[in-house]
């Protein structure tokens, strides 16, 4: 039987000119899997860096007023776009690590932990060296689909029903001012009984944040007024309105 099978196999090898696959093909496949793992970790880490940046620029000192609690504030602050990128690439990293030559030896928890931890640690490092901010800023400026973390932050200050409003002062009058909010809506704001934060400057064109009470669709009563700083880059208007060329020419 041995001779018969070995004879048949060897004959087939000879007749069909079967050759062992080249070693480089197997090596390439192996490197490809590791390469994909590395790329997934890097992309996932960049997502972590931007998420940390987004959390960092958020107004944590006002979480109670803006969201009602730290957990809710965190949920509102998190960028689901980057969270999705993080989850997708950690999953890709997990898949690739599992499919390395020795990946099968490790249980699911070890592989998930290694993928997660390496992504988060590298992400922390990327944030520390400023990659989070750089990526965020360059996407805000160059990617039409990307609104950015600052936009998310601004939208938190645009909760009129919660008594939160922010925008640019258009006109100052005795006991009131006109303000243009994030969505370019003009508001009449009564400031007579409002508490002013020491650092706030009420001047035309200055950005302020207000805690108070909405009276009607265009009227607001301020209880507390504070400066509204930009913590991140905001998308240039030309990206929305197609005016980049005109602006550059000017």
């Amino acid at each position: 039987m041995t001779e018969e099978i070995s004879k048949k196999v060897l004959e087939k090898i000879k007749k069909e000119e079967i050759k062992p696959e080249a070693k480089w093909k197997f090596l390439l496949k192996n490197y490809f899997v590791w390469g994909l793992f590395a790329i997934s970790i890097i992309v996932g880490a960049l997502a972590v860096a931007v998420i940390i940046f987004g959390i960092k620029i958020s107004d944590w000192d006002m979480y109670d007023r803006l969201a009602g609690g730290p957990v809710k504030f965190l949920i509102m602050t998190l960028s689901y776009f980057w969270l999705l990128i993080f989850v997708v690439f950690v999953s890709v990293a997990y898949y690739n690590l599992k499919h390395t030559k020795k990946g099968y030896k490790y249980n699911i928890f070890t592989i998930v932990a290694v993928s997660l931890l390496s992504t988060i640690l590298l992400g922390g490092f990327a944030y520390t060296v400023g990659f989070g901010e750089k990526l965020e800023n360059s996407l805000v400026q160059k990617a039409p689909f990307y609104n950015g973390m600052e936009h998310k932050r601004e939208m938190m200050w645009n909760q009129h029903e919660r008594g939160v409003l922010a925008g640019k002062i258009l006109e100052l009058r005795e006991g009131e001012l006109d303000l243009e909010d994030i969505e370019k809506i003009r508001w009449r704001v009564f400031t007579g009984s409002a508490e002013m934060m020491p650092t706030v400057v009420l001047e035309d064109g200055k950005m302020i944040g207000i805690f108070g009470k909405k009276i009607d669709d265009n009227t607001f009563e301020a209880h507390k007024i504070m400066p509204f700083k930009k913590n991140g880059l905001k998308k240039p208007p030309c990206l929305f309105e197609g005016r980049c060329r005109e602006m550059k020419e000017k």
Binding site: V9, I18, P20, E21, A22, K23, F26, K101
Partner: peptide, 16 residues
């Protein structure tokens, strides 16, 4: 079994 041996032969370079 014959097919297995052919497969083994083709993949000999993958053996670690």
């Amino acid at each position: 079994l014959q097919e297995v041996f052919i497969k083994v032969y083709k993949n000999l370079n993958a053996y670690d």
